[in-house]
């Protein structure tokens, strides 16, 4: 007699009792990288972008900065600091978590941990400069724009990134770029910021297949 599935298979218990495990980069490991921006270069690029933003928007009126979690957030704050120093005006700065707007739910092994959105100002009618560390496929920015729209109707959205590494998958470009870096897809661009990583800098690392 043919016996339907399920009836006789071992039923291993949900392995919930052995305590937590830590997520790792699935199937991949990172080799040692090569530094492409020093701390000083990061600082100079930030200052230059701050000037560009004010120049391009002809002043600071109606401007706001929104950093994408996580490393976009300290970068946005630094831009706000630099603009305050140059122009004497403190732009509103916020943090945006795009976790719930990602389009790759089916590609990730686990849901990313939510880090939180903090937009302590009304977006309506403002020109919002979205700040992130690296621009790559453009999907993060797409998600960020969707998320922003749920908070209000900005007059315009601009984009500032520290590194543009190419390989766009969507028709998105940055208005302000710290450094254009040609990369291949099997490389990772690592941005370090002092507030999170204890130092500033940018490195390129090569992905290697994990021996697992």
């Amino acid at each position: 007699m043919e016996y339907p599935r399920g009836a006789f298979k071992d039923r291993p218990r949900e392995a919930g009792k052995e305590g937590p495990h830590r997520a790792t980069r699935a199937g991949q490991a990172v080799s040692d990288g090569r530094r492409i921006m020093t701390a000083d270069e990061v600082r100079r690029a930030t200052v230059r972008i701050a000037h560009e933003i004010v120049e391009k928007q002809a002043g600071t009126e109606g401007l706001a900065l929104v950093g994408i979690q996580r490393r976009g957030v300290p970068l946005a704050r630094r831009l706000a600091d630099a603009i305050a120093e140059n122009e004497g005006v403190r732009l509103p700065a916020g943090a945006l978590d795009i976790t719930f707007y990602r389009d790759d739910l089916s590609l990730v092994a686990h849901q990313p941990v939510v880090k939180g959105t903090d937009l302590p100002f009304d977006l309506n009618g403002l020109t919002v400069v979205v700040v992130d560390d690296v621009l790559y496929t453009g999907r993060t920015i797409r998600a960020a724009m969707d998320a922003l729209m749920d908070f209000g109707r900005p007059r315009a959205i601009r984009l500032a990134v520290l590194v543009d590494r190419g390989h766009r998958e969507l028709p998105i470009r940055a208005d302000h770029v710290g450094k254009n870096v040609p990369t291949s897809r099997d490389e990772i661009v690592k941005v370090l910021v002092e507030e999170i990583d204890g130092e500033d800098g940018v490195a390129i690392e090569r992905l290697v297949a994990a021996h697992l």
């Binding site: 997520a23 389009d103 990313p112 496929t137 453009g138 690592k190």
Partner: peptide, 13 residues
Amino acid sequence: MSDRDPGAEPIVV
């Protein structure tokens, strides 16, 4: 510590 454009590489939690 990496760019995390979704769809391009796994999420690092």
